[in-house]
């Protein structure tokens, strides 16, 4: 029954993307610009700072939010990555993660608040979030390359799309989890809607929002590595290189660096989110 293809959807999509590229180049360049600036700022900055300072800074963050155990682990893990010879790649990856997460937060938190406070908006947004999360990550890469060409910036843009859903979802969840009677109490005492948001909903949703941030960081890290397929630098490139040349050692060592960086970022942000009111 399906011998004949009746719906040439892929051709339509190709046509559509080509049309976008031909007619709306300026618009996509406009989107690209802030990402490009932010990313290069982070990348240059992180690589310019002496590694010792970066390591110490991360260790102090770990100590501040969690304790001595995590601080020592951070110190050891980051030094180890340095001695493996991947310091520069790690800093590039970190810069890409930070840039992606920054944009995810700037866009995602307001969207999350809006969906948390408005049922209709949530209904509209939900299928988009589902699509963003379930579409295989490789699928993003082709249109991204067509619209933004290859390289770090394109990688970060793909990452932003992939890593945004958790922070939107968990911000929304956090806002919805605030007990209705607390909102009611604030209103009864004369709070405006803005005051309810700033004095009740956001402070109480903060641990959940931070959990969303943690998820977004983890997803960003995963995507940043895959983005090496479209020419993004960082720890992903040695992995791809190792894969292509069957250099098991290189791939495994680069992979190990990614895992260590992921653990450091995960533990630090998780303990940030874990701070609760006693």
């Amino acid at each position: 029954m399906f011998e004949e293809k009746l719906i040439p959807l892929e051709r339509w999509i190709t046509t559509f993307v080509e049309w976008l590229v031909d007619n709306h180049r300026e618009f996509f360049q406009l989107i690209k610009w802030p990402v490009e600036q932010t990313l290069s700022g982070f990348d240059t900055g992180l690589n310019a700072i002496p590694p010792v300072i970066v390591i110490l800074f991360l260790a102090i963050c770990a100590w501040r939010f969690s304790g001595w155990g995590l601080a020592v682990f951070t110190l050891v893990a980051m030094t180890f990555i340095g001695f493996l010879g991947f310091w520069e790649d790690t800093m590039t990856t970190l810069a890409m993660v930070l840039a992606s997460v920054l944009f995810c937060t700037i866009v995602g938190v307001p969207f999350g608040i809006a969906t948390g406070r408005n049922d209709r908006f949530e209904k509209i947004l939900r299928p988009f979030l589902d699509a963003m999360q379930t579409t295989p990550s490789f699928v993003y890469l082709v249109p991204i390359v067509m619209l933004f060409s290859v390289g770090n910036v394109a990688g970060v843009l793909a990452t932003i799309i992939f890593a945004m859903p958790p922070i939107i979802r968990l911000t929304s969840l956090g806002i919805r989890q605030v007990h209705p009677e607390l909102v009611e109490a604030a209103l009864a005492f004369g709070a405006t809607r803005t005051q309810v948001l700033l004095k009740v909903q956001i402070p109480l949703a903060l641990p959940t929002i931070l959990a969303g941030l943690n998820q977004t960081i983890m997803m960003a890290l995963a995507m940043v590595v895959i983005a090496s397929l479209i020419g993004a630098g960082g720890l992903g490139s040695p992995v791809i290189l190792g894969l292509n040349t069957l250099d098991i050692g290189l791939a495994v060592v680069a992979g190990l660096s990614i895992v260590l960086l992921a653990m450091v970022l995960d533990r630090i942000t998780q303990s940030m989110a874990g701070k609760k009111y006693e």
């Binding site: 009611e184 109490a185 009740v200 402070p203």
Partner: peptide, 11 residues
């Protein structure tokens, strides 16, 4: 207003 569930701000 005073509420049955107290409705105090936990933070």
């Amino acid at each position: 207003m005073v509420f049955q569930s107290f409705a105090l701000m936990p933070h």
